[in-house]
Every structure is written in C-alpha cells, then in structure tokens.
Simulated assay, not measured.
Amino acid sequence: MRRHRRAAAGGDVHGGAGRQPARAHGANWPFGHRGGVAHREPFPWAPAMEAGLGILRLRPGDFWAMTPRELDAALRGAFGTRKAATPPTRGDLAELMKRYPDGAQHAG
C-alpha cells in the first residue's frame, strides 16, 4: 500500500526510490523535532491484508494501489461506522446511585 498518492513514482511505503533523505529537508523533517524520526508503531500489515484481500475480496493489485485511508474508507463503506454509546443522563446516574449506594454490601 502506498502512504499517499504522491509516492507512486517508484516509491513504496517503506520509502524506496523517489524519497529524499531527511537531511535534504532540514533537521526537523519529517516529524517536527530534532534527533531523527520519532518512534511510531509499525503498520498492521496482517490485519490490513486480511481485511483488504480476504474480507473485501480486493484483487492484490487494487489492494496494493490503495492508501491506508482508502482502505479505511472502503471498510467503513462496507460495514458502516460504530456509533458511540450515548452517555448516561443525570436521571440514569441517580437511578444507579439509588440502586447501588456506596458502601453497601452486594451479593455477587
């Protein structure tokens, strides 16, 4: 998968051909601090490939031409997005506090 569309000219997600060295961009490139590249978690290749190739049934060429954002959009389009749980109201909290007062012994 490509990081973004501009990396298509011979480069890959690991910064192959076409990527300029960090020193050409200044000491703060690419993450805005001195001392080199910040530690980032590695990209989750196995789950991404399982989702793209196995679940979405993409052809390998189509999968590898996608950016991670495009894969995310395809998965959201296929399965929707999770809706956040509605937070409890004051009435809900009051009911829970009445039902389960602090310091009470509960059989459990």
Rank of each mutant, 00 (worst) to 15 (best):
Q105T: 15
L71V: 09
I55V: 15
Y100V: 10
L93N: 04
H33G: 14
F31E: 15
W64T: 03
H39T: 05
R57F: 00
L96H: 14
R76E: 14
D72W: 12
L58N: 05
R69P: 02
T86G: 07
A38Q: 10
A7T: 14
W64G: 03
H39S: 07
L75G: 05
W29D: 00
A85V: 12
F63Y: 13
G103H: 03
K83F: 08
A84V: 15
R5S: 05
K98D: 10
A104T: 07
A74K: 15
R90C: 04
H14E: 04
G16T: 13
D72C: 01
A24S: 10
A48H: 03
G26I: 04
W64N: 03
A48I: 08
R59M: 08
M1E: 03
H39N: 10
R69H: 09
Y100I: 07
W45L: 14
E50Y: 01
A8K: 08
R2T: 03
R23H: 15
R57L: 11
M66T: 07
F31N: 12
K98V: 01
L75W: 02
D92H: 14
K83V: 13
A38I: 09
D92P: 02
W64H: 09
A9Q: 08
L56Q: 02
D92E: 08
G35K: 09
E41W: 06
A85E: 08
T67Q: 02
L93G: 00
F31L: 04
H39K: 14
T89P: 00
G80N: 04
A9M: 13
V37Y: 00
R34K: 09
M97I: 00
L93Y: 01
H33I: 06
A22H: 08
W29K: 03
A48T: 07
A8L: 12
G108N: 15
G35I: 08
R34N: 05
A8Y: 09
F79L: 14
L96R: 12
H39R: 13
H39P: 02
M49D: 06
R57C: 12
R6E: 10
R82Q: 15
A94S: 07
A48Q: 06
G10D: 10
